[in-house]
Each structure stands twice: as C-alpha cells, then as structure tokens.
C-alpha cells in the first residue's frame, strides 16, 4: 500500500503550518505547527472536534487562506494561491446556481480556454461518471443534495487535478446516499489514484475510506494522532462489519472523543 512516504517526495507536505485569526500574538490560534506529509495517491481522512482547524488546514492547502507561519509544499513547491492541480469540494456544494450542470462542469475548462467541442467531450465524460447524464441541462435548484454534490465532484474532476481536497463533502447527505457516494468515490479513486484529503465528522466514514486517519485536537488546533488503516481496497460492506474495522474505528473514536484537554499556552 502507499503508506510510507520514505524515499519518495510527498505529494503535499505541511511544515510547521500555523494560523492565527485576529491580531498578532493575542489572536486566536486556530492551527498550531501542523506537520504532515501525504504521499502521492494516498487517501487520508481528517477527523477531530469542531473548531480544531480542519477547514483552516484545508483552505491553506487549497491556497484560499494564508499561513501565519510555516509552509505548505505541493510536489516540493510552495503553495501561493489556488491552482487547478488542487481540486476542492466544499460542503455547501458551491455550484453556480445560474449555470446548468454541464455549464458548471465546464466552468474550469472554459477558464483554461479549452475549445467548445473538447469541453463538451470532457464534460460528457465526467457527467456520465457521476451518473448525471439525464440532468446535464438541469439547473442546480432542481437537483437533490446528493446530485448537487456529484455535480460538484464532476466539476472538480473535469479540470484534472492531481489532488482532491474535500471538506465534509457528504455531511449533508442522508445515510444511504452517503454510503453510495463513498463507494463511488473509492471506485474513481482506485482507478485514477488522485491524492485525496477528506475531512469528515463521521468516524465510520473516516475509517472506511482512508489509508490513514489523521486525528486532530483543538485549543489550539493541532495534529493529535495518525492512525493507519490496514485494510485492503476495494473496501466492502462486509469489511465495514468486520472486527478489524471495529477495532480501528474504536481507536479513532477514542482518540477523537477522549482527548486530554490541553490548556492553550498564553503569551
């Protein structure tokens, strides 16, 4: 499995990444010296109590938020602003409501200046991939939550990113749709092997999807523990019910919900 990062350049590397909100030293420390390497093609999930800086870390990786200190390297190069090699999927779908599914999927391609015929071919492919063929010309307001999220995924895939950053993408979905989306995501991932960072509140989901589960702690937001998931892919429903799965889930659960409180160091 793609567990170790030794000897290979990590796909993305967080080095002492620190972020404060508010003024100077008195500001709120949302992320405290995060150090983390993620290998090319790896699928990591991030869990942790609310407010522990998961979204902050992801937005920094996406280039939507600046660091206060430290740096993020993607393929060995420092991140400065967003780039099409890092696809982002937001919890709130963030579809452009005035554009149809197809126009949404083609948004990034249009910016790239791809000719219309080719755009059409690419968007057809990804709309088909996420099963929205019959809704290609529908406006987002006519789609269900799961369909909106699938459209957002197709839009992110279309620009061919080498990495996907997903912030609680399935948070708003019902249990059944959610499980389907998980399987679909793993299916595409195992075929195309993009690096995925996936934030979730759902411990089950975190274990089911990941090579490694990153557990974070809050006040200040920081890395708490990294839990490897030594289960083979493809993951199956039977695996979900296996004792091995239960053991890992317990470990993750325990490290998320029984964190020792740490008093934030005041300066």
């Amino acid at each position: 499995m793609t567990q170790g990062t030794q000897g290979m350049q990590p796909k993305i590397s967080f080095q002492d990444v620190t972020r404060r909100f508010g003024d100077g030293e008195s500001g709120f420390l949302a992320l405290d010296r995060l150090n983390l390497d993620i290998a090319d093609g790896e699928f990591v999930t991030v869990v942790g109590p609310s407010g522990c800086g998961k979204s902050t870390a992801m937005n920094i990786a996406a280039g939507l938020l600046d660091v206060t200190d430290g740096r993020v390297l993607v393929d060995g190069k420092g991140v400065a602003g967003p780039g099409p090699e890092r696809g982002v999927i937001f919890q709130q779908y963030a579809l452009f409501p005035w554009l149809t599914v197809r126009q949404n999927v083609e948004f990034g391609l249009r910016i790239k200046g791809m000719p219309a015929a080719e755009r059409r071919r690419v968007s057809d492919h990804f709309i088909d991939l996420v099963g929205l063929k019959d809704f290609a010309d529908a406006l987002p307001k006519t789609l269900s939550g799961g369909m909106k999220q699938r459209c957002a995924i197709a839009r992110a895939y279309a620009v061919n990113p080498t990495m996907l950053l997903m912030d609680e993408p399935f948070g708003a979905l019902d249990a059944l749709t959610r499980v389907n989306m998980q399987d679909q995501l793993l299916d595409t991932w195992s075929r195309e092997r993009r690096t995925v960072i996936f934030i979730t509140h759902d411990v089950d989901e975190a274990v089911y999807l990941a090579n490694r589960v990153i557990v974070m702690a809050s006040k200040p937001g920081r890395l708490h523990k990294i839990i490897p998931v030594d289960l083979p892919y493809p993951r199956t429903e039977a695996m979900r019910l296996s004792p091995e799965f239960a053991a890992i889930r317990n470990e993750v659960w325990h490290s998320v919900y029984h964190q020792k409180p740490q008093i934030e160091a005041k300066h």
Binding site: L64, P82, G83, P84, F107, G108
Partner: peptide, 12 residues
C-alpha cells in the same frame, strides 16, 4: 456567497 468566489478561484 464567498464559497462561490472560492469555488471559481480553485477552478483557476
């Protein structure tokens, strides 16, 4: 909506 602007930014 900020997220829409961010969505556009990450698409290049």
């Amino acid at each position: 909506d900020r997220t829409l602007i961010n969505a556009a930014r990450v698409l290049g």
